[in-house]
Design a binder for these strands. Structure first.
Lengths: 238, 238
DNA sequence: TTGATCTTTATGTATAGACATATTAGAACG
DNA sequence: CGTTCTAATATGTCTATACATAAAGATCAA
């Protein structure tokens, strides 16, 4: 177990979440009032409150004034998907990573692109096509649009040496993102770029990124079907 | 904006996360000490501490004793993937939902199943194969193993009327889950069940579920490629 | 120079008390 | 009987204070 004695509010939190996760306290069950826990643990209300507030923030319990705190009913499975840098993914496989720029052009967003990317039509972008290799094998095809209004520096970057993903992380602050994940059959371009037959299953991850409500970039990553899986974990605590 | 005046610690939290998200405070930047914020906001240290502790818990800042608090460098994009009940997904498309049990047997976990599912070998399970329909079209193929040691009630449930997903939510407490998402070519069984040609691209979502460290269930959901996409959102704060 | 020890400092945890606020059960009233 | 008001109560927020603890820096000794 824990050699280092956990803090008191952490112990309270662990005790309660343990009872919920084990099913001893089913959804809807009213957990003891703060003043009851105060007595049970011989501590002040602030300490109990810290534990319960945290449980409420993570969604394990729900608090109602004047009424008490209740175990929540799990609704939808909310899983946390960690989306890593491609270099990191490749190196985690123990393979040498190589990046290669295929095309780069500065132009306006086309009609159809606007539709798939969610970027407004006619804005100026840098359009990139890149390949990521794991060893000799192509690992991922990247098609990207970068909004020059949001990231003017992108105009003077060639992206010959550095991949746009890591470059953007250094040039744009934290941002909101939306990911769409789906399976498609490889079209001619993807088949050629990934060295797979046309029609083979591919995993596509599309990401739209905003910073301060302004669209920053749209990227479509295409992985050869069997070569890549996304993993998402859900654990109510820690 | 907010009509209801936010609490003070929430305002402090919003101010700081705003400065981080806008890029005003880049990764690595040391944010003011607690005693400085105490003066700036004219409040007690506990209030500032509550805001900073929460920012640290969500990973936006990192706290170092004797040194201060620092804006963290975004490592990987962590996106929240909402995985809904299949009925909900289908009805969100405006289509009538239908569930159908295909096979149900009680048996031990096989060698190969143990490998893919992560369930220990030789434990007793209920093995199910089910279909979910959106209108007339097959929408999703579900293959599931339920650990009878963890969920003894599953032995006496036929699953003819209710799908195992919703049934389990009512019979198992809060749990941890791991999702794996990938694209594969449809094998013969999937092609038949989904009404698509062999080799067509399919999206596979596999979920392993535990409750209190005991494996509960393994499920593989196979969607016809174009018919389904997963969406994950990332917003660092609220 | 190196290593051990002390000091300082910012965060980590906890307390006891205070007042605010939402909500509900019950009382009073029409 | 339904409605309105009131009092009770659990949570929400905040303060002022206290001591613990980890770690950076300074000091001193080998």
């Amino acid at each position: 177990m824990n050699v280092r004695p956990a803090s008191l509010h952490q112990r309270i939190l662990d005790d309660i979440s343990g009872r919920i996760l084990s099913g001893a306290w089913p959804p809807g069950h009213r957990i003891p009032f703060e003043h009851e826990l105060t007595e049970e643990y011989g501590c002040s209300r602030m300490t109990v409150n810290k534990a319960l507030s945290e449980l409420a923030r993570t969604g394990l319990i729900e608090r109602r004034r004047r009424s008490g705190s209740y175990v929540t009913r799990p609704r939808s499975q909310a899983a946390v998907l960690e989306i890593h840098d491609i270099r990191t993914e490749v190196e985690a496989l123990g393979l040498p990573y190589r990046y290669q720029l295929v095309t780069r052009e500065k132009r306006a967003v086309s009609d159809t692109e606007s539709e798939t990317s969610g970027l407004p039509e006619d804005i100026k972008v840098v359009a990139l096509e890149c390949q990521h290799f794991a060893g000799k094998q192509p690992f991922c095809l990247e098609e990207r649009l970068i909004n020059l209004a949001a990231v003017p520096d992108a105009a003077s970057e060639t992206f010959a040496e550095i991949a746009p993903g890591p470059w953007l992380i250094g040039h744009v602050p934290w941002s909101a993102a939306e990911h769409t994940i789906r399976a498609v059959a490889a079209d001619a371009r993807a088949a050629k770029a990934l060295g797979i037959p046309r029609g083979a299953a591919c995993l596509i991850v599309e990401r739209r990124t905003w910073s301060a409500d302004e669209p920053v970039t749209f990227v479509r990553l295409t992985y050869a079907g069997e070569s890549h899986a996304l993993v998402a974990r859900f654990a109510p605590q820690r």
